[in-house]
Nucleic acid binder design. Sequence first.
DNA 1: AATGCTTACAACCGCCCCTGT
DNA 2: GACAGGGGCGGTTGTAAGCAT
Length: 243
Amino acid sequence: MVRQPYLKKGSWSRDEDQKLIAYITRYGIWNWNEMPRFAGLQRSGKSCRLRWVNYLRPNIRRGNFSREEEETIIHLQKTLGNRWSAIAARLPQRTDNDIKNYWNSRLKKRVIVENNNSASSPTETKSKTKSSVEENSSDADSSMMLGIFLDSDTRGMHDFAEIAADTTFFPSGSDPSVAVDDHYSMAMDNYLVSYWEILSFLEQPQMIEGLDCEAISQNSQQWHSHHQQYYDPLHDFWVNPLI
DNA sequence: AATGCTTACAACCGCCCCTGT
DNA sequence: GACAGGGGCGGTTGTAAGCAT
């Protein structure tokens, strides 16, 4: 096995996000450890998986935890403990990492304060923490950016492809104030990724010795047949030369 | 305005579990 | 049953942004 000469760490750039999205949108997820190479990313498989699962995948909600969600988290944490994935399973569109962070940064303190107050003065449960809904209004921007995901689970990859082409979807390392005028150039960036991806396709698994190319191909085809209805016609540009 | 402190959250690390051989 | 590899999970860290002094 050839060791990666260099694996990047730290924050993901918009370009990396686009590459990962473009790759997964096109080929699906078949092996996190191998994918980064084919996707043109100098990242570990784990890093890619984390980025995708916690941030890039469609239909995730971030920020703006509702009061109901807060109560659910508190209740589930009480009953299940720090089993964030189990808790996340009961909160649609929320990631375990997001819930964990929210718990550690806000809810844990709130619960402690509430417990203390209920032991002494039950009337001051709010303490210094503002209503979380009110407090979270500062997250409005990010929730607006991601709110496009909120409507339903059924929108799937079709919208996702559009969102992937929407520069406002890249809060990490991007400028939230990116002007609408920039969308054209950003869209062109996406085309560049597409072009790059086609080049990259030539390096796909069938070229690699020792990999089960047929299985990968089948996997990819299954994924495609499952998701095909979601593709934006825009991406017809990516016609798979193997099909 | 400069500095230090706090908060929020993205990302990494290490461990564990599951699956295939 | 033993082993290896991949993926998932929870704890922790790094750091940017916001706030207070």
